[in-house]
Each structure stands twice: as C-alpha cells, then as structure tokens.
Design a binder for these strands. Structure first.
Lengths: 242, 242
DNA sequence: CGAAAACCTGACCAATTGGTCAAAATTTAT
DNA sequence: ATAAATTTTGACCAATTGGTCAGGTTTTCG
C-alpha cells in the first residue's frame, strides 16, 4: 500500500482483502497470481500490450484462459497489476542519492543498481519501456506524481553537491534522464547491443564491462574522476575477449 | 538501392520499377505511398506493430483499407517499407566521425544530429525503438550487418583519437550505445521527460538545453572539456525557465 | 480514338480477439 | 459433516483482425 501497488484492481471475489492474508487462505491465489504475472511479463515484453494475447499468457502459465480472467478480471487489469509490481522496484535505486554520501560513490552505486536491474529483470524493463514509448497511458499518474517528486527531491541533493564544488555543474533532471537511458538500454535494446558486439548472449563479464564503461563515462562527465586513482580510465583496458 | 531501401518488397503491379521512374508515371503511386507511410509511422509509433490496425492507418491516410493493400501487399510489407525509410536516416550521423576532425567537434556534431532527429522525427524514433525492444525480427540483418560494420569502422577512428591522447580511453562500441541511448531517450521516452519536467510540450529551448546537457556530459566524460573554455560548464546555468 | 495499364474500393471471409457464464470441483470454516 | 466460500474450466459470443477479389474508374500512350 505504501508503494505503488495501489494501482491494482483485481477482479476475483477476494479482490479487497489486500494485505489481510487470512490464516492460510489466499495461498492458492497468491501462488497463481505470481505464476500468471511471470508469464504475463514475458509475453507483454515480447509482444507489447496489444500484441500479447490472454491465450498466449495462459498457455505460458499453464492455466486455462478463463482462470486469468478470474484473478485479474480483464487484460488491462492484469497489465496494470504487472506494471505496479515493476514500478515498486523502479524507485529503489534512488536511495543511494543522499547528501551525506560521496557523489562518486552514490552515482556509482546508482548505476550499479540500475545495470543490475537491466541484467536480472530485462523483461520487466522492456514492459516498462514499451508502456512509456506508447504514451504511458497507464502509468502517467505515477510519472507526473511520485517520480516527478522524487526527481525534485534528489535534484536538491545533486545541486547541493554542485554548489559545494564536489561535482561539475549539470542539470540534475537531465542527469537522471541520462542515467536511466544509459543503463536501461542494455535491457531494452539488448538485441542491438548483441548484434553490434557480435555476441549471441551477453555474459556476466560483458555486463560488468558495460557497467564499468557507463560508470566511467558518467563519473568523468560529472567531473568525479579521481586523477590520482586510475580506476575510471583503466577500466577500458580489458574488455572481455575481443 | 545504395542504402537500406533494399528491404522493401511492395505488392502492387509496379513493384519492381524501383528507381526507374518512367517519365511521369508512378507519380500517383509515389504520392500515395508517402501519404500512407506517414500515416503508418504515426499509428505504428502509437500502438506498436500488432496494436496498429490497417483500418486505423487507412483512416489516418484518408484512404480505403484495400488501397493500402494495393500498394504494400501486407501489413508486414508496409511495416518493412516504413522501417527501410527510417533506417536510411539512421546511419547518416556517423559521417561526422572521421579521423581528421577534432574529437570534440565530431562528437558534438554527432550528438546535435541525433538530438535533432529526436526532435523532428520522434515518431520514426519510436517505431525504431519498438522494433528493437520486441526483438528486431525485421531489422536484425541490418543490425548485425551494416550497423555492426559501421560501428567497427568508426571504432577504429575513436581508438585512433584515444591512442594519440586526444581523448580519454573508452570502449568505442559502448560509447556509441551511450550516445544512442542519451539522444533517443528524448524521443522515445518523451512522455517521461515531460512528466518529470512538468511540461505539457517540450519547446525548442527545452531541446537546446537538453542537447547542451548531453553534450557537456559526453564531452567531459570523454575528457574533452576544454578547461580554458567554459562552454561545457557554463551550459547548465540557464535552463529555459524553471 | 482506343486499348492497355494502372488505380480504386465496397463487399466479403476465415481466424483470432477479449470477455462471459453456468456448472462443477475443491477448499475452508463451523 | 455440511454449508459456505473459493477456485476451476469448457463452451460460447460479439467484435475486430488482416487479407481477398471482382468489377469498376482513371490515366497513359501509341
């Protein structure tokens, strides 16, 4: 309730016992919902909202189609529930951006978190990307509400770092746009990345390398490259196989 | 023919007179095809491949549905023709990346071109983004063919700049991934950008500001910020209205 | 002019879509 | 046990989908 789950609007009889979780009751529900959501994530990521069919999701979940409607009411209901689950993860990385922390550390941690998210949850990232590319009809309230406010808050922190001369001047909002773009591209556009690199699949080493490249670019770009410490500059020297 | 238009596979009787353009003949065809492609770009951008219906495209073009099939055969044919048109524009910006040029100038020009493309052709960018997010089934050959080769070629240029100490070391391929992501995000994710900035529409001033931010981040990130010249650092000082 | 080529389109079709529902099976609570 | 609540599902439906086609109109060109 405290996060974004409030979007959810389920269709079954027990749609309003959120968080109540009677003794053992709803165990089946929770298990099936998770199963359906996982299948939905894959199908929505692959085909987009309209391209995804309830039939395809049902087959992937190994359940009859009518069962999905029992739990989520409509296709849009299922889609919204999925988005809610994804958005809950989206904001977490912001926790690194706090005044007390060293800017370089904070940005490095933020990038690592986002890159890790792209690595471990590429399908979620694609569903999110697809939603925004096509107008964000479902999550617009979130974007101009919670996200906008969070960016405002964290921008104050960054402006503080800039004012105290701890990093180069940059418009914080655009820095965030850049960070999101730089990290999520490895999930959303993975086909392109793989094609250009000539890889069939990206390995952990590839991802670590990518993370170092993004980190180096951003830190240097924010005037945070420590000239004494060669970390940022040295990170390019060893790409995982050529 | 020299570019990517080779993908096209039209359906009408004159499908094979490409480039021939008999005296006045095909004037109607060319006009209608352009009209349909424009409508298709908007609808595909809004709804994705599956979400776009031939009916919707037809209405937007002000033509009966059967007419679209007359010119492009199938929905996929129309989609491929559209992608071909878009890809032709995609590679152009690379022309700035040549050894003789100053790295800072070259990268600035590249960013400006890409940002301008995001500004003037956001729908094309979205169609392209959608295609890649959903697996690039149609343009995979292009990605692992021409694009991969181009990146290879241009990477040599960048590595040259690095070797001669003209810019900081960075993996060229990942630099390109970053440049694409940083610039295209202003087209593909414009809803998010507008929501966070609290703008209903982005003005030219907004776009210029964004371009300066991206440029500053990248140039500094590549060790190309001229300490004597305050351009990069000063560019943050005047965001278009707060 | 006249005929061939190009262009146009309303009517139609099979397939798929999201969604409903009633009846049955299962689980839970008393 | 047994009544109540929950879960399951096959069969069905109206609407929309991409695509076809025959027969028409217009344009082109000798």
């Amino acid at each position: 309730m405290t996060k974004f789950s409030a979007i959810q609007a389920r269709g079954g009889p027990t749609a309003f016992d959120e968080g109540a979780s009677r003794r053992g009751g709803g165990r089946t529900r929770r298990a099936n919902e998770a199963r359906i959501l996982e299948a939905a994530e894959a199908v929505f990521a692959e085909a987009g909202f309209t391209g995804a069919s309830m039939q395809a999701i049902a087959e992937r979940a190994g359940l009859p189609k009518a069962n999905l409607h029992y739990y989520f009411g409509t296709k849009e209901g299922l889609y919204r529930a999925l988005l809610a689950r994804i958005l809950d993860m989206w904001v977490d990385a912001f926790d690194h951006i706090v005044p007390a922390r060293d800017p370089a550390d904070a940005l490095s941690a933020y990038i690592s978190d986002k890159m890790h998210w792209s690595r471990t949850r590429p399908l979620a990232s694609k569903v999110f990307a697809n939603e925004i590319v096509h107008g964000a009809q479902q999550i617009e309230p979130y974007l101009s509400g919670k996200l906008r406010q969070t960016v405002k808050d964290k921008s104050v922190v960054i402006e503080g770092w800039i004012a105290s001369g701890r990093m180069a001047p940059i418009d914080p909002a655009h820095l965030f746009f850049g960070l999101w773009a730089l990290t999520q591209t490895y999930a959303d556009f993975d086909v392109q990345v793989r094609a250009v690199l000539g890889r069939e699949r990206l390995t952990d080493a590839d991802h670590d390398h990518a993370t170092r490249q993004v980190t180096a670019l951003v830190l240097r770009g924010c005037g945070l490259a420590d000239p004494a410490d060669g970390k940022a500059a040295a990170s390019v020297s060893n790409p995982p196989s050529l």
